[in-house]
């Protein structure tokens, strides 16, 4: 339980210090909730949660800074960055193009990138997956899926 697991990319200490700031921000925002007119005030738990976040992150940050181990590997490997960009495009596309077109495009491009080619296989898997999701969600369970406004 205490042994270190996988090797970490660089930036652990910086990330932990960012979490300290996040905890301090939550505490500050929590203290601005309503009036602290007693132990049952609405802000008590938010402040307690923020305080616990700050203290715990502080301990983790000090420990990571002291260890100062050199990180291994990139923070955002090429595949993670590429899929991240595609997901952002997918989000924008969902609102504009609707579920079918945006998901087809996302799946096709993501599979094409990750398997380094094989256009036909990527297209077939994307089409089949979108068809299955459409049938299950839209037709069987009558769930509303994003419509988009380009093809509306």
């Amino acid at each position: 339980m205490t042994a270190r697991a996988a090797p970490r990319p660089p930036g652990e200490a910086a990330f932990c210090w960012a979490m300290v700031l996040l905890g301090a921000f939550v505490t500050w925002q929590g203290s601005a909730i309503g009036h602290f007119d007693g132990p049952s005030a609405a802000g008590v738990f938010p402040v307690a949660a923020g305080g616990a976040m700050t203290l715990a992150a502080l301990v983790a940050a000090i420990s990571a800074t002291r260890r100062a181990e050199p990180g291994l590997g990139p923070v955002l490997p090429r595949d993670v960055a590429a899929i991240g960009v595609l997901v952002l495009g997918y989000m924008a596309g969902l609102e504009a193009l609707g579920f079918v077109a945006a998901s087809l495009a996302f799946l096709f491009l993501a599979i094409l990138w990750l398997q380094r080619g094989r256009v036909l296989r990527a297209g077939l898997v994307a089409a089949l997956a979108v068809a299955v999701v459409w049938v299950v969600f839209r037709m069987v369970f009558r769930v509303v899926l994003p419509q988009g406004w380009v093809f509306a």
Binding site: M19, L22, V26, P46, G50, A52, M53, A57, A60
Partner: peptide
Amino acid sequence: FCGALGVA
């Protein structure tokens, strides 16, 4: 930290 973050 994660538990407190979840509570918040």
